[in-house]
Design a protein around this nucleic acid. Sequence first.
DNA 1: AAGGCTATGTTGACAGTGTCAAGATAAAAC
DNA 2: GTTTTATCTTGACACTGTCAACATAGCCTT
Lengths: 201, 201
Amino acid sequence: MANAVQSYHHGDLRSALIEAATARLSEYGVDSLSLRKLAEDAGVSRTAPYHHFKDKSALLSAIAAKGFSDWHTAAKRIFEQEDKTPQARFREFVHEYIGYAADNPEMYELMFGRTIWQNQAATNDLKDVAFPCFQFQVTMTRYWQDKGLLPNNQDALRLAQVTWGTLHGIARLLIDGIYADSSHIEEMCDCAADLFMQKQP
Amino acid sequence: MANAVQSYHHGDLRSALIEAATARLSEYGVDSLSLRKLAEDAGVSRTAPYHHFKDKSALLSAIAAKGFSDWHTAAKRIFEQEDKTPQARFREFVHEYIGYAADNPEMYELMFGRTIWQNQAATNDLKDVAFPCFQFQVTMTRYWQDKGLLPNNQDALRLAQVTWGTLHGIARLLIDGIYADSSHIEEMCDCAADLFMQKQP
DNA sequence: AAGGCTATGTTGACAGTGTCAAGATAAAAC
DNA sequence: GTTTTATCTTGACACTGTCAACATAGCCTT
């Protein structure tokens, strides 16, 4: 959205970069994201981004942070539907999680890929958004344990790690097209949900 | 392992490249693997590898194929221990899977990362090794269902996808250091195993 | 209002990367 | 012994992230 007037200072380059990156991300994938292209998209020179982000990883982290924030909001919306049974909400949560990953594979890849997490490269800004997101998973897990949906003899944190791990693993297998193809998404979600809620057939 | 005699033809460059790559992989990680460095390791010029591998991805696929083959062997060994109960073998399988991933993070990353799977980039050679590996997971799943360890009301293929998905997800969370740290590996494994085998407390 | 500080943007440069094209060498096939 | 073929070489290209040095312009203080 570069406007007609080309002034020396961009005005809001940071936002423009994130916007351009988000657009490019969903269309061409995280691997084809280059700072130089993004700078060009924003109508600015190669090294201008460095005045707003420490390095490429920091830019990607900022985008991922937005993803986590969005997902956290979505998760809360699903979890807090008072008019639905806990069972229904749990099942919906599973489907929504996998659905989000399947619909936004590149964003998911970015959020949970090693690109931004490896070598403790994660920004503090990123951690600040991502950690509450996981904390919420623990909260939900504890709730579902209380409601008798999930086994009560397990530590909530471990169980949350395992349940999230399951969703994460299925999501990745789907996204990477390894051993699962997208035509069976719903069945896989139901299978996972059934597995967790073995007490309620 | 370049020998003293420097002849124009290497002799067994293909093997040398794979060897060098495997060594570099575990030490420096998959991201720092470059064809040029590998060529240098093998004492050969930059483009020599192209006479043995179509491109970089093909070389990586060859290494991953070895990984799948090794893991398939390990899985069979665990599964076929006649002197142990199915429960014990299942539990051991879970621990071994996560343990393998935790001990060989870069190899695991390569085997299951998008580097070699994305865009249908997977070589046929790779698929030929990886697919039986997954088939075996289905076979084991069906066996455990028959033994009453895993829920019998689920399609074996779906259940295999979900159980593998769980292990895969936990492995990735651990490797990428996202929300789990390696000090709780055993607890997480037990939690996952318990979750699957809810009928046997 | 004048001058300086600072945020922001620029060009130049460097060391990397994967990969193609064209030519050199040696081993194998005939 | 000659020709084919597999293998290896150098040269080149486009691309990447990132640093250093310099340019511009808006803001802050005096």
